[in-house]
Design a protein around this nucleic acid. Sequence first.
DNA 1: TCTGGGGTCCTAGGACCC
DNA 2: TCTGGGGTCCTAGGACCC
Length: 419
Amino acid sequence: MKKFILADCNNFYVSCERVFNPLLDKKPVVVLSNNDGCIVSRSDEAKKLGIPMGAPLYQQKDVIEKNKVSVFSSNYQFYGDMSDRVMESLEMLTPKLEIYSIDEAFIKTDSVSFGDVFKDVINIRKKIIKWTGIPMSFGIAPTKTLSKIANHIAKKRTSEGVFDISENSVADDIMKKLPVEELWGISNKWGERLRHMGISTALQLKNSDAKFIRRHTSVVLERMIYELRGISCLNIESIKPKKNIMSSKSFGAPIGDIEPILEALSSYTARACEKLRKQNSKAGGIYVFIRTNPFQQKKPQHKNGYALNFDLPTSDTRSILHEARKLMRGLYKKGYKYHKCGIILLDLVPDSYKQTHFFSTNDSDEQNNFMKIVDRINNSMGPQTLFYLSQGIEKEWKMRSKNRSNRYTTKWSELLEVN
DNA sequence: TCTGGGGTCCTAGGACCC
DNA sequence: TCTGGGGTCCTAGGACCC
């Protein structure tokens, strides 16, 4: 019998912080998004205080101060490295793995007996904690969608962190009480439409007419119905190169002048190009955008974006920088306080892709070698060892990050000290 | 004062062709 | 007074995820 298992790290960013700082155990802890804007990870204790997921930090100041909640700025270098450790461990212990996000992976197994899978998973969970320090939950089911539900139950209702929802009656019992919006792939908007159609629980969706739903909504929901019935429509996906690569950030403070905006854009562009070369791709075009703060509707609003296709796909930071900055000069308007800008690399192709352009005189080998050297230096000596002057040196646009923990696992200078 | 960043997939509708 | 129909491809935008 084929099974899907969803393995999910509990409160991942908080758990990472706790690995190197055990004093945080059993205490309320939250981790913030970029720019210290929103709360994106909460310990169980913080959840109990009623701090919602995604809430802006400033709205929770009172409850945080009153309850002495520990607050951390995001530390993605650190979390990314911890994620690698967890995923590599899972890969060693399981037959087939799809890494779905920084803290989640689907496992597919063809094991025969139900009892064995459960016991195996309990053991896997123990090993991951021992090797990495990160607690995980596992949901076992005949389809991906059901494994999501099982995982949810594993987190909420079990002490061993593993739940199997393969038994039909068990599944129905749980789905009867599960609001339709809590399903993987359904959110407020769709939930509302379904409720208008008289469907408010997962069980009702499972038992509704798939063809009717397809006609009135979309193929996505039709597939979901089959998945809820235990008929697998979504398989394990192998690692694919990204189709788009984005880099964007809101500024540490609103900016009116174009120069710092161009610097910020240059930095994001350099970052995006690094990611591009890391997955051995070239970009066929770019989209550059800029906007004011949409939360401040009383102030003048401006939002603009523009796409450009290259003559030939490229991964050379220098030429992409040049085009991106040119686009930005066209997008920017004087008189606004801008809040965020960014770039998306589009139409990615493998870098082996060669097509000579009739008028092109580019020596692309020379370009590739130059970029390879830059990447190698930055990889071995640390990010930003080499950077482009257009990224600026003062960096007044730089994001806020008041309470970042050490990059314990990726920086020699920030190793944990034991006294 | 302060509201994340980075992705994917699907659909509708326009452009274009014969 | 009358002005085709059917197919494909592409793009923008919506919705969703973590």
